[in-house]
């Protein structure tokens, strides 16, 4: 993809709750795989997708793999643009404090930890989406 040196802006839009369907896990795997191609990657969590980042997920009871801790590795994969839809949180009676904190380490500043999370309105999201080269919806 980047053989010709062109970096494209990729956005992954996550709209489903985890575990009920396979979309959340599939999206995460695709994101981690494509992270190897040195593109400009961002992730959006909107609609029921905001539930993917809920703190305190315990999956022993449903016998499925708990992949919620994998989101914390995104920073290591240099994915540090995470957009959370504010209205989606509000409709669900949630706030940022219900979600995991996601950070990345800035190598240029002695590995200082910085937040990857941006709380945005739908109007802002629309603008950000418009500026992408590729948008993949899950």
């Amino acid at each position: 993809m980047s053989e010709d040196g062109v970096v494209k802006k990729f956005m992954y839009v996550n709209r489903k709750s985890p575990y009920g369907t396979i979309y959340a896990l599939e999206s995460l795997e695709v994101v981690l795989i494509t992270a190897a191609f040195d593109q400009d990657v961002s992730l959006t969590f909107t609609d029921d997708g905001v539930y993917q980042l809920m703190k305190g997920q315990q999956t022993e009871g449903i016998g499925m793999k708990n992949f919620s801790s994998t989101y914390s590795a995104l920073g290591d994969y240099e994915i540090n643009k995470i957009f959370i839809d504010k209205e989606s949180l509000e409709e669900r009676g949630l706030s940022l404090s219900d979600l995991q904190e996601l950070v990345w380490e800035d190598e240029d500043e002695d590995y200082a930890e910085k937040s990857s999370i941006n709380l945005v309105s739908r109007a802002e999201l629309s603008e950000i989406m418009n500026n992408q080269d590729v948008v993949l919806s899950f």
């Binding site: 190897a36 801790s69 994998t70 994969y77």
Partner: peptide
């Protein structure tokens, strides 16, 4: 144990360096 994934080579290299 921490992230429930095996890191990609690039990530492994960087983290080992750190």
């Amino acid at each position: 144990e921490e992230y429930q994934i095996a890191p990609a080579v690039r990530v492994l290299t960087k983290q080992i360096g750190k």
